[in-house]
């Protein structure tokens, strides 16, 4: 493989992995606080269609991305409303949200099917982007991708290094104890559910604004679901979650390459490979001893109600 092809492959893989990475980060922050929201697919689709429609109408990518974040947060707030004050079962509520989001997205997006949009332009960083192999991949990307990486770094540091992250994991591990220690559990959970959904919405917008700026129905093709599985297999660690997302991106680009090379395998089978390979790699990793400690937050998906 010549170096240009390798550089292109890397460049494309990072773009392909970013929507999933954003969604998985959203899942991660919510689940670390004990919030299990299975509605990611619906939220991501809503983010994608909102971002696309607003960008198309206003001509501003930034407005599209911000609108996607807002719609994601709104979907998160809907989930919070259902599960916290109304005390609905979180699993059922999440599934309902997934179906609701997909349906609404199809309705809103029906007018845009087939229309396309000028994708977010690449903002190459001078000099650095000239580096061989990694230059293009790391430093000739669009601003939204840089923003995603900055978010990932911020989230990783916050979760693992700050007092806020400690309080967050206390809420996810044992809300009863956290409450007795004076942590306000429900506001924390509500905020993390909304923040998580906002990130997922932004992931959807990356898909429709940068990765494939052409509206088709079911743009996310299951990324919301795979993100949920990935966070589990990555053991709720920011670094592993990011690694897994970009592994997925790499496999999905490899899959496109194989289709180009005219492999005589059904394209349906081929398009399955990134999902299978990514999960297989994670399962192989998580079955090793040193990952055995990485179990779910103790109170994941359990409703918490203040007594008295």
């Amino acid at each position: 493989m010549d170096i240009h092809l390798a550089a292109d492959l890397l460049h494309a893989a990072l773009r392909a992995g970013t929507p999933l990475a954003l969604c998985a980060l959203g899942v991660l922050v919510a689940e670390r606080a004990g919030v299990l929201n299975l509605g990611q697919e619906g939220i991501m689709l809503m983010g994608a269609v909102t971002g696309f429609a607003i960008s198309l109408e206003t001509g501003s990518h930034a407005a599209g991305a911000l609108a996607a974040i807002a719609v994601g947060a709104l979907m998160g707030a809907l989930f919070v409303l259902l599960t916290l004050p109304l005390r609905a079962n979180p699993v059922a509520s999440g599934l309902a949200l997934a179906v609701f989001g997909s349906g609404l997205c199809a309705f809103v997006g029906s007018g845009y099917v087939g229309s396309s949009l000028q994708g977010i332009a690449v903002a190459a960083i001078p000099w650095l982007s000239e580096l061989p192999l990694v230059g293009k991949a790391l430093f000739a990307q669009d601003p939204l991708l840089y923003a995603a990486w900055a978010l990932a770094l911020g989230i990783g540091l916050t979760l693992h290094r700050t007092r806020f992250g400690l309080v967050l994991s206390a809420v996810g591990e044992d809300p009863e104890v956290a409450h007795r220690l004076g942590v306000r559990v429900l506001p924390m959970r509500a905020a993390m559910a909304c923040l998580g959904a906002a990130l997922t919405g932004l992931g959807g917008a990356y898909l429709s604004l940068a990765y494939t700026p052409l509206w088709t129905e079911d743009m996310t093709s299951g990324r919301g679901w795979i993100a949920l599985a990935m966070v589990v297999l990555a053991g709720w660690r920011t670094g592993s979650v990011l690694l897994a997302s970009y592994l997925f991106g790499f496999f999905s680009i490899l899959n496109l390459l194989m289709q180009d090379m005219g492999w005589s395998v059904s394209p349906n089978l081929l398009s399955m490979t990134p999902y299978v390979l990514c999960l297989a790699a994670l399962i192989a990793l998580s079955s090793q001893g040193r990952f055995s400690d990485r179990r779910a937050p103790g109170a994941l998906g359990q409703n918490f109600h203040k007594e008295g």
């Binding site: 400690l166 994991s169 206390a170 591990e173 044992d174 104890v177």
Partner: peptide, 14 residues
């Protein structure tokens, strides 16, 4: 009223 998976220091800090 301790969170089992955290260490003593983190429980105190919390």
């Amino acid at each position: 009223c301790l969170i089992e998976r955290l260490n003593v220091q983190d429980n105190l800090r919390l």
